[in-house]
Amino acid sequence: MENLSILIHLDYTLMVVAIGAALLGTVSGALGTYAVLRRQSLLGDAISHAALPGIAIAFLLTGSKAPLILVLGAAIAGWLGTLLILSIVRLTRIKYDSALGLVLSTFFGFGLVLHTLIQRTGNANQAGLDTFLFGQAATILERDVLTIAILGGVALMIMLVFWKELKLLVFDEGFAASIGLPTRTLDILLTSLLVMAIVLGLQAVGAVLMSAMLVAPAVAARQWTNRLRLMVFLAGCFGALAGVSGTIISSTASRIPTGPTIVLCATVVVGISITFAPNRGLVWDRIRHQRNRRDLKTATGRLLK
């Protein structure tokens, strides 16, 4: 009887974790589509790394590990990092990629120092903060799932409400501005949504690999469709798939960090998509190439007769 209740309990925990991973996979996959289409994949990397000190500072200031507080700290730090990158590009002669690298490593280093300091203090409450580095989905509790569901839901809702405005911004910013869309505000909105998706995923996936959760599902989705609507939807599904399978795999064996497992699962999806997707896939490409050659041969053969 006792065994049974443990089993049920375990299953329940796993279910909570899997739901959390699915939700954040959906949110980061869908919003990551915009980052990929705007060629801002690296910005996601910078934001996730820059978010790390925010978590530490939020914990140091409040002493709390409530998900909302840590997420807020991460979001503020991620935002500051983004702002800093943009200011460096605007005010100095340093190029975008250098500014990105500079901010990413500085914030990340600072975050690591803070986390080490927190660990040294031996605060019993601190256990778990280091999961933000490589992610530990097993630490996802019901309250975390609730946070992810609410904030992620809001982010997706905003994306849907401003669908056509965001689409035009990403496709043709000049035209968008010419018809009066406030492109700078929309840009800030889109970046904020990206920050939101990233900080929600930090606990499960970790700062180091979070950007893969933005990029991989979108890249895979692009292979299967030529419509933005479907691409966003598929990226969300792929993100959820990677999230769930990665979580389950990492929880069956102890001491496997969830982040890398989820990312590996996402990579498998990308690999399959790049190889087998119709029209854009490598196999398809090969077949088409062969067919063209054959057609050309028979055509020239006929001409020469």
Partner: peptide, 30 residues
Amino acid sequence: YVPQRGSVDWDFPTNVLDVVMMGRYGALGW
């Protein structure tokens, strides 16, 4: 306004009709 053709990424996932309808976004409003 007709921007330079090279100013956008033509690999953007959308079709012809969709791009043309973007010309109505201004009149449609938010």
